[in-house]
Design a protein around this nucleic acid. Sequence first.
DNA 1: ATCCCGAGGG
DNA 2: CCCTCTGGAT
Length: 215
Amino acid sequence: MTKKERFAFVLNYFEQHAPNAETELLYDNPYQLLVAVILSAQCTDKRVNMTTPAIFKKYPDAESLSHATFDELFPLIRSISYPNNKTKHLIGMAQMLMEDYNGEIPDSVSELVKLPGVGRKTANVITSVIHHQPNMAVDTHVFRVSARIGLTTNAKTPLQTELQLLKYIPEEKVHIAHHWLILHGRYVCIARSPKCGECGIRPACKYYKTLIKGQ
DNA sequence: ATCCCGAGGG
DNA sequence: CCCTCTGGAT
C-alpha cells in the first residue's frame, strides 16, 4: 500500500465514522480556547476542563487576566502540570495581548508564538480552530498515531510530522484531521497498549502489519 | 513506571 | 540537540 493510498483509507474511514470530530476542551470564545490550550500541555483535557470554569469566571477576558497576580491565579492552576510556568505564562500572555494586540487574539502563527506560553502547537490549534487556517497542530497523539499508522516516515520532531502530514492532507480537511488523529490516539491508538482489535484503521496500519507478522 | 492536545532556555 | 518544569491518573 502506497502512502497516498494509506492516507486515502485513513481519511475516508474517519470521514465515515467521525464526521463531526472536534476538541474536547471546553471554551466559549477565542480567549478561553487560548487559555485552555496553554493549560493542556502535558495534561489531560479532562483535568483542564475541571479547572477552567473557575478561571474563566474570575478572569473572563484578557483585560482582567492581565491584572491578575501570581498568588491569585496560582491556586486555580495548582492541580495541573507545571503550575508555576503556566501561571506566569497566562499573566504574561494577557499583558502582551493588552499591550500589543488591543486585547484581541492574533490570527497568525508568527504573531501567536510571540505570546508567552504559546508555541507552534498552540498557535496551530488557534489558527486552525478559530481562524480556519489549514494548519496542523502536532501534539503527542498526532505524533505517535501518524508514526504508527505510517502516515509519517522517520519523523523525529513535531515539525517534521506537521510538514509530512500537510503534503498529503487536502487543505479543507486539515483542521478536522487534526482532531481525528487526536481522538483516535486518545481512545483507540493509545500510547501504552493500542486497541488494535477495535481499530478500523487496521488494514492500512504499518504497526498492525508488523504486529501480526511477529506472531 | 509511564503518560497526558508543550514551551522555554541552554 | 539537550534539559527542566511538575500534578494526577493508570
